[in-house]
Amino acid sequence: MLELRLVQGSLLKKVLDAIKDLVTDANFDCSESGFSLQAMDSSHVALVALLLRSDGFEHYRCDRNLSMGMNLTNMSKMLKCAGNDDIITIKADDGGDSVTFMFESPSQDKVSDFEMKLMDIDSEHLGIPETEYHAIVKMPSAEFARICRDLSTIGDTVVISVSKDGVKFSTSGDIGSANVVCRQNNSVDNKDNETVIEMNEPVSLTFALRYLNSFTKATTLSNTVTLSMSKELPVVVEYKIAEIGHIRFYLAPKIED
């Protein structure tokens, strides 16, 4: 028996909006520690890892570990039927072939339930080791989204370079080239507006902008984003989800021939 009650149901709606274009089908894994998902995009270039910790739910009952295969397009269709202020409860029986999403309006005067069929998904689960990254950049998520969107009008790839001077985003294409440099700044009145760079050694990696743009669909989940980079490793683009967890996107770099 599984019963997870999330008071801030809009978070789940935003999570689905953030990943449904990158991943079609995925297994949601439920254990006593939390509700999680790990999935790759169809070309296996990017990986998304979601964690919603059990203590972030108002009520969290998970009698035994459960993996529920869901089509994210269909799940998103159902969650779109929840109001932004609604409380969402996810319910499933052990060994059942469906999941129920229950939506309660804040004043409790409207209660809906939507039952969705589960599917068998044969997915690979990758082990992601804890890594000390060469450079970690924390910046406003809207700024990162703006840069990715702007640069993708010029080129297909971006070189992200972190040095003591700041973080530089560079692209080039048929019509020309562009560089955006963000320097470390400290905002006295609003930590969310800060750009903070922790660097052990300079790092420069090339990525497909198409994927980074897809990741920025998570911008509504957090005011800040963290980019963790090491030489010859996938970048980690992380959005914290309120007090409850995180969504991390891993993107393999492009290597020059």
């Binding site: 790759m40 270039v45 992601i128 090339t206 996938p234 393999a252 492009k254 021939d257």
Partner: peptide
């Protein structure tokens, strides 16, 4: 020219 790696080149299967 650049080559797009896959994520599976970096992480092993659990």
């Amino acid at each position: 020219a650049s080559f797009q790696n896959t994520i599976k080149m970096y992480f092993d299967e659990d």
